[in-house]
């Protein structure tokens, strides 16, 4: 709430400056102006308000963001307030939103602080970096990049997200609810095999880590995993 308020104050100050206090509304012909309906919720970082968390969008890969926007618009990822905004938008325009946010550079928030038991850390590290081969769960890092910063174009980074957001997303897939698209979806296949304890440990450990490094190119993804996530990768390539 506070941040929204500050945002408005800044904007008012800016408008007042330009016009020397007159009333006419001057509208810059920019994407920044066109996304104001988004930035009322999506500020620079993850934001929690009235039981909802508004994830950060800045710097996420364009292909991934584009996929999500189409999912929201077409009802494959469920969040009605966004579906209403996107309802009458063309794919081309969604691609511009995705591009705008992917190029937006904003400082990342400080990592969250949690105390974690040694076992919990070990559990999270094993899942994140080694996976569970006998259950056919690849490590998170195999798909999200060795530094967890994501693999272009369609796999998002896992750092710089809040614990609340990570937990909610993983549970969204696990619950089998239609919050996020399910089939054919490689992330769903992974998440549905995690337990509550797994999710808690992973979300904490990820949210504690500072953001460092860059996302990796597609060549870092093994052919086998590329095939598994082929649907997402294809979707994000469609527009190019």
């Amino acid at each position: 709430m506070f941040r929204v308020f500050v945002f408005f104050l800044c904007f008012i100050a800016c408008v007042a400056n330009v016009n020397g206090g007159t009333t006419a509304v001057i509208v810059p012909d920019t994407m920044a102006e066109r996304v104001r309906a988004c930035t009322i919720c999506h500020t620079g970082e993850d934001k929690i308000e009235r039981d909802a968390y508004y994830p950060r969008l800045a710097g996420k890969s364009q292909g991934y963001l584009f996929n999500q926007l189409r999912h929201f618009r077409d009802g494959r990822r469920i969040y009605p307030p966004m579906a209403i905004l996107l309802e009458n938008m063309s794919d081309e325009y969604l691609q511009e939103f995705a591009q705008y946010f992917s190029l937006l550079q904003l400082p990342y928030p400080k990592p969250e602080q949690f105390s974690m038991q040694a076992e919990e850390i070990a559990l999270a590290e094993r899942l994140i970096y080694s996976g569970i081969p006998e259950k056919d769960i690849p490590s998170c890092s195999a798909c999200h990049g060795d530094n967890l910063m994501g693999i272009e174009p369609a796999i998002p980074g896992l750092l710089g997200l809040s614990r609340a957001y990570i937990t909610a997303q993983l549970n969204g897939w696990r619950g089998g609810s239609l919050m996020r698209s399910r089939t054919p979806e490689c992330m769903y296949e992974v998440a549905k095999q995690l337990s509550d304890d797994d999710v808690n440990a992973i979300a904490k450990l990820l949210a504690r880590q500072p953001v460092e490094g860059k996302s990796r190119p597609l060549s870092e993804l093994s052919p086998e995993l590329r095939k598994r996530c082929g649907h997402q990768i294809l979707l994000s390539e469609e527009m190019k």
Partner: peptide
Amino acid sequence: HGGYPPTTQGNPKPYGMPPF
């Protein structure tokens, strides 16, 4: 709920109204 006018050939990049 806010909203954007439709994207059309004549208005491909509309501005939006935030939800409140």
